[in-house]
């Protein structure tokens, strides 16, 4: 790039931090004033969770070009691990008795609990990553579905976390936090985690290291011959992706206050797939956009009840038929509307 181009780019102001922090501040202010009611807050939280789900699945299905359809399984692992930890550490329950830590510590330790759920889930991702060394495409898709079923049936048969009846009590940790300072904790944390997830995915995928993941998508043999350790990159991609799904699961569990294994079955994975393909494979802004649209759609379809589960898979069929590349393809919003670039500095370091 010649020097004039670099100078030109330096003039651009990076609006991202201002936009994100400003938006979050306005949101929390509105909540504090009481303009946003509980229902809208819940919708915003689901948007946050869905952004994490779609953008994390996009790492594997979009950037890496593999086909994982078991994302719900990893959400389950994160949800159960962090819920169990919450109940164990912060609440007095009939399940394990007295809380192991004073409930007030939840204020600081809650994000840690969510992250631990993510880490355990990341290791569950190895279950899919290791077979992916040898198989691709359809075969890997089958393996991921199988993994999803394994997690669901495993928890169905684990009596100490409630089996198929489900697990609850983690909400008490949130109540314990609210007893100290009244804040919309779940809203704060879902928004924070969603922003961080997108931020870290963006940073990874723009680095030369992360571009090794995209190299696998475009030509795996080429990647190997150009010294990219593809097995290592697959482990990185699968673990990062499933770890984020675990974080989304933990947040989901604490928002609802009740989880059961069937909330994370193949339907959940299908939801994530719809979001990724709606937004466009390999487009991070597409994933964010589609998570927002999809959450609103789900809410709009709520009165339809069971019919919803006919319409969502139908949407996937229609998407594949008419806009297989999704809303944005593998472009970003700034590629579709080049004028936006003025506000979001792109640095080619």
């Amino acid at each position: 790039m010649d020097s004039t181009k670099i100078n030109e780019q330096k003039k651009h102001i990076n609006l991202w931090p201002a936009l994100v922090f400003g938006g979050a501040l306005i949101l929390f202010a509105l909540v504090a004033v009481g303009v946003i009611n509980q229902y809208i807050q819940t919708v915003i939280m689901f948007i946050g969770i869905n952004i994490i789900m779609s953008s994390s699945l996009n790492i594997v299905n979009g950037y890496m070009g593999e086909f994982s359809c078991g994302h719900g399984g990893f959400m389950l692992v994160g949800a159960y691990v962090s819920s169990a930890l919450s109940v164990l550490l912060f609440t007095d329950s009939s399940w394990v008795g007295h809380s192991l830590l004073p409930p007030s510590t939840a204020i600081f330790l809650f994000p840690v609990v969510i992250i631990i759920g993510g880490i355990v889930s990341a290791f569950a991702g190895l279950l899919v990553a290791i077979p992916s060394f040898k198989t691709r495409d359809d075969y890997l898709a089958i393996i991921t579905i199988a993994a999803n079923f394994i997690f669901v049936s495993l928890v169905n048969n684990l009596e100490f976390v409630g089996g198929s009846r489900g697990f609850m009590g983690m909400k008490n940790a949130i109540y314990a936090m609210e007893d100290i300072i009244r804040l919309p904790y779940m809203l704060i944390w879902t928004v924070t985690f969603a922003v961080l997830a997108v931020f870290f995915i963006r940073r990874l995928m723009r680095s030369t290291f992360g571009k090794g993941i995209s190299a696998i998508r475009y030509d795996e043999i080429s990647a190997e011959i150009m010294s990219v350790n593809t097995n290592h990159m697959k482990v990185v991609a699968f673990m990062f992706s499933s770890g984020l799904a675990g974080i989304a699961g933990g947040l989901f569990a604490h928002v609802l206050g009740f989880i059961n294994p069937s909330s994370f079955n193949i339907m959940k994975s299908t939801e994530s797939l719809v979001m990724v393909y709606l937004g466009g494979m390999g487009s991070l802004s597409g994933s964010v956009l589609s998570a927002i649209i999809f959450t609103f759609l789900l809410e709009a379809m709520r009165p339809l009840q069971i019919l919803k589960w006919v319409l969502i898979p139908l949407m996937l069929i229609l998407l594949m038929q008419f806009i297989p590349e999704g809303l944005l393809g593998n472009r970003e919003l700034t590629d579709v509307f080049p004028k936006l670039k003025r506000f979001f500095r792109r640095r080619d370091i």
Binding site: L204, S207, T208, F209, S227, V236
Partner: peptide, 14 residues
Amino acid sequence: ISQHYQIGYGIADA
């Protein structure tokens, strides 16, 4: 991307 073999940093650095 062909500098991957001497990339010299990890995912946390990115």
